[in-house]
């Protein structure tokens, strides 16, 4: 091969390398922009819990599941993911308010997403998964398990009922459920 042809090929390869570096940089900047300006970050809560006793003591006992307005007007929903159901199967949350979703599982790895939102997390035995978000649209949103967890995986889904803030009326104990509506 002639030297000038070889030089041309080398020039093209260097040009392409520079372009790829520019593309990766642009994507990284877009991700940083989404995180810093729009507060869109991957859930990064690290909190352990004993999967063998989570239903017996602590915040994931049956009576404490669902949505609750806590100190500082903080809306928190607690859900247990088991093979092959969510407990409770429906949670009600207000729109345009910061909501904290907390999940735990006593059995295998599950995962959730809430359709039409950026809520998406894994639920791993031994850990509490936590997601903060603001639901801007009202209505019933599907929340399926998105991590294959066994033969009944396709039957495992729940509903997130987003209601206008003025229609979100928790009881005297601060609890709100889909049944009460």
């Amino acid at each position: 091969m002639r030297a000038d042809t070889e030089q041309e090929i080398l020039k093209t390869e260097l040009w392409w390398t520079a372009l790829v570096i520019a593309i990766v940089t642009a994507i990284m900047l877009a991700i940083i922009y989404a995180g810093v300006v729009h507060h869109i970050n991957p859930p990064s809560n690290i909190e352990t819990i004993d999967p063998k006793t989570l239903h017996l003591t602590g915040e994931f006992t049956e009576s404490n599941l669902g949505t609750r307005v806590e100190a500082g007007d903080q809306v928190t929903s607690r859900v247990v993911a088991t093979q092959f159901a969510f407990q409770p199967q429906c949670i009600v949350v207000p729109s345009n308010r910061t909501v904290t979703l907390r999940f735990a599982t006593p059995d295998v790895i599950h995962g959730i997403l809430v359709t039409g939102t950026n809520v998406n997390t894994m639920i791993i035995p031994g850990y509490v998964s936590q997601v903060h978000t603001v639901f801007t649209k009202t209505g019933d949103l599907l929340m399926p398990c998105h991590e294959f967890c066994g033969l009944g995986h396709s039957q495992m889904w729940a509903t997130v009922r987003v209601v206008p803030e003025d229609q979100f009326r928790p009881g005297p104990d601060g609890r709100a459920s889909c049944d009460a509506r």
Partner: peptide, 16 residues
């Protein structure tokens, strides 16, 4: 990628 980013990902709002 950028169309999904601008018209789906960003409008869906904050999460973290």
């Amino acid at each position: 990628w950028f169309l999904m980013y601008a018209f789906v990902f960003l409008p869906r709002g904050m999460v973290g």
